[in-house]
Simulated assay, not measured.
Amino acid sequence: MKEKLFSESFLTLETTPPKLPTIDPMIEKLKQTEAYKYVDGFTTTDCPLSRLKYNSIIAAFKIQQTFNKKVIATMSMRDRNIIALQSDLLGANDLNVTNILALTGDPAKMSDQPNAKAVVEGSSIKLLEIIRAFNSGMDYAGKEFKIKPKPVNPFAVTNSYAKNFISIEKKIYKKVKHYALGIITQPVYDMEIVEKMLDIRDKIRNKFKDERKKFDIVFGFFPITKLKTAQFLHSHVPGIYVPDSWIEKLIKAHKINEEEEYKRNLFNNLQKKHPKIHIMTANRFEIVKELF
């Protein structure tokens, strides 16, 4: 996954494991829609919006086994202390799940589980520090492992919009400083924001003289074609910013083919500008084939 990220193009597809004791129906859907043919790899989410779902690491293992493509498994700080984080990383390492997306996690108050409490011993930075220790052959307490873990490739996330983009730059810099290889953005709907994010990337790259200079941005792409969906994401999903211009387009679009055109144009523009994209479809995998 690291080598592909640092190549000319990189295309991943987000999968959200179901609230079931198996992910076989989701894997079957990936097969039926043929979405797996168009992407370089996948991600598995970790109980997004604090809703109970199947384990992200085991899901990543099963998807890798099925499609022979690498998967980035999300790990949230919300639900684990430093003991559980390291335990999960050790198990993931044995399963060859070595690409990890470090998240702080959505607030526990959003959960569908009554009285759920967050652990949150720290932000995603602490998980990046733990991964750095593992890659040095040690646990977070500085004790050497008898068998050194396989190298772990850490990824992180960023918002794609802020009134002051300096705040985004500072947060990305901090994550890259802690050796995040790839920074996946929340969905983008404005090519001007894409330009700003690439400028931030270049500024941060110039601050490093080692391997961190190679880090890259991966743009989130969520093909919203329904006004109701756009308004829900903008109002209720933390970190997602849907610009007024996009909502206005959806208000004016009365025909399905117009909505499809907006989706395809945005994807094509992203591919031309920076073909490193993370597709989010809320498990509507059939959308992937429609983009090509």
Rank of each mutant, 00 (worst) to 15 (best):
P21E: 09
V194E: 09
S7G: 15
L20N: 15
K2F: 05
F292Q: 05
S9D: 10
R132E: 07
T16R: 10
L270H: 14
F165L: 15
Y161S: 15
M197G: 14
Y241A: 10
I184A: 03
D190R: 13
I256A: 12
Y173G: 09
V218S: 03
E195Y: 11
G239A: 08
I63D: 06
G142M: 11
P223D: 08
D24C: 11
I166F: 10
Y161R: 09
A180D: 03
P275A: 10
K207V: 01
I183W: 00
N115E: 12
T225K: 14
S76E: 01
I247S: 01
V188G: 15
P223S: 12
R284M: 10
K203S: 07
V194Q: 11
F208E: 00
A102V: 03
F267W: 12
D40I: 10
Q271C: 13
L227V: 04
D40M: 12
Y189T: 14
D88H: 07
S124E: 13
R78S: 06
A35E: 02
H236P: 01
P151D: 06
S9P: 07
I27K: 03
N153Q: 06
T44E: 03
I224W: 04
A156T: 04
A133R: 08
Q32C: 08
K171W: 02
V152S: 09
E192L: 15
F208T: 00
N269Y: 04
D46P: 03
Y241W: 12
I100M: 02
K70T: 05
N115T: 06
K175A: 00
E258Q: 14
K170S: 11
N257V: 07
K196T: 15
N135I: 01
F145P: 06
I57H: 05
F155A: 15
I172S: 04
R78W: 01
S124Y: 01
F145L: 12
F221C: 11
D24K: 15
L49Y: 08
G182H: 02
L11W: 05
N115S: 14
L13I: 06
E290I: 07
T185A: 13
G105F: 00
F267H: 13
L89P: 00
K209M: 04
K2R: 13
R80Q: 00
M197Y: 06
I27G: 03
V157M: 12
R212I: 01
K170Y: 09
D112M: 08
L89R: 08
I130Q: 10
L128F: 00
R201L: 08
F222I: 07
Y161Q: 14
L30Y: 00
I193D: 15
I100E: 00
I58F: 05
Q231D: 03
E3F: 06
I72S: 01
Y173S: 11
V194W: 07
D46H: 02
L52E: 08
I183C: 02
A73T: 05
L52V: 13
P238T: 09
D199C: 09
S136Q: 14
E195W: 06
L291V: 07
I82G: 07
K150I: 06
K272G: 14
